[in-house]
């Protein structure tokens, strides 16, 4: 997933990674250490990659001005229309499941130019037909300022592309070894394909080497537990 995310980072852009996003942090750093050396990398609360002096307000104000080219979000539920749910499942007043809450996700899905949605587990419980509560909608009415929005959804099984025309997710590529049958079985909606669905390029030896050394050491500064467990091989 980190390698797939790295490919979405373009050199020279301003790319930000928010809270609880260790995998995007790895992907962005991998890109920065390889093809995107001139990218401005922002990783929340990282001692070397957090340029804001005034706490999170400065970060949110920066984001509201549309200064991020690429940002990352996740969802407790994610649906076929690119809607994200970070609040509750079931009756909102007496929820069956309570997620951490939207925080800035109802703004951060609008203002960065491209938002990559990531989720480290791919199951019908997460990838649902329709989210119960819409924290962050895939599509919005035309009279709302929205310079950016959903771009890709990256999971351990596949990459979805957000199609603005149909306001829905389309499978861009299946990861090596994943069949359409398996993806269908592990997704709560029927995945849409178009003529160009391919196979995700596997990580290269060189990419893995950088991930397991320089990237691992760098993310350990903000995600110490992740760094000690996720790179075991």
């Amino acid at each position: 997933m980190a390698c797939v995310i790295a490919r979405e980072v373009r050199d020279g852009e301003t790319v930000a990674v928010g809270t609880l996003a260790a995998i995007p942090a790895c992907g962005v750093l991998l890109a920065h250490f390889t093809h995107a050396p001139r990218t401005t990398v922002i990783i929340i609360n990282h001692p070397d990659y957090w340029p804001f002096g005034g706490g999170s307000k400065e970060f949110y104000d920066f984001a509201q001005r549309g200064k991020f080219d690429l940002f990352f979000l996740s969802g407790g539920e994610i649906d076929q229309h690119g809607n994200l749910n970070l609040i509750t499942v079931g009756d909102h007043e007496r929820p069956r499941v309570r997620f951490p809450g939207g925080a800035g996700a109802a703004m951060l899905y609008y203002m960065p130019r491209r938002v990559v949605v990531f989720r480290a587990d791919h199951s019908p419980r997460v990838f649902v037909e329709r989210v119960d509560t819409v924290t962050s909608p895939g599509a919005t009415p035309p009279d709302v300022v929205r310079p950016g929005g959903p771009w890709k959804v990256v999971t351990p099984l596949c990459v979805f592309r957000y199609d603005r025309q149909s306001a829905g997710l389309v499978v861009e590529s299946l990861h090596p070894g994943v069949s359409r049958e398996e993806l269908g079985r592990r997704t709560g909606f029927t995945p849409a394909y178009d003529g160009v669905t391919g196979v995700t390029p596997a990580p290269t030896h060189a990419e893995l080497e950088i991930l397991r050394t320089r990237v691992k050491d760098t993310v350990a500064r903000t995600y110490p537990r992740f760094a000690t467990t996720a790179f075991a091989h």
Partner: peptide, 14 residues
């Protein structure tokens, strides 16, 4: 004022 939010369920819940 905040950017975003319009079109989400925050309009209904809050």
């Amino acid at each position: 004022p905040v950017r975003g939010h319009v079109g989400s369920d925050y309009e209904r819940l809050r």
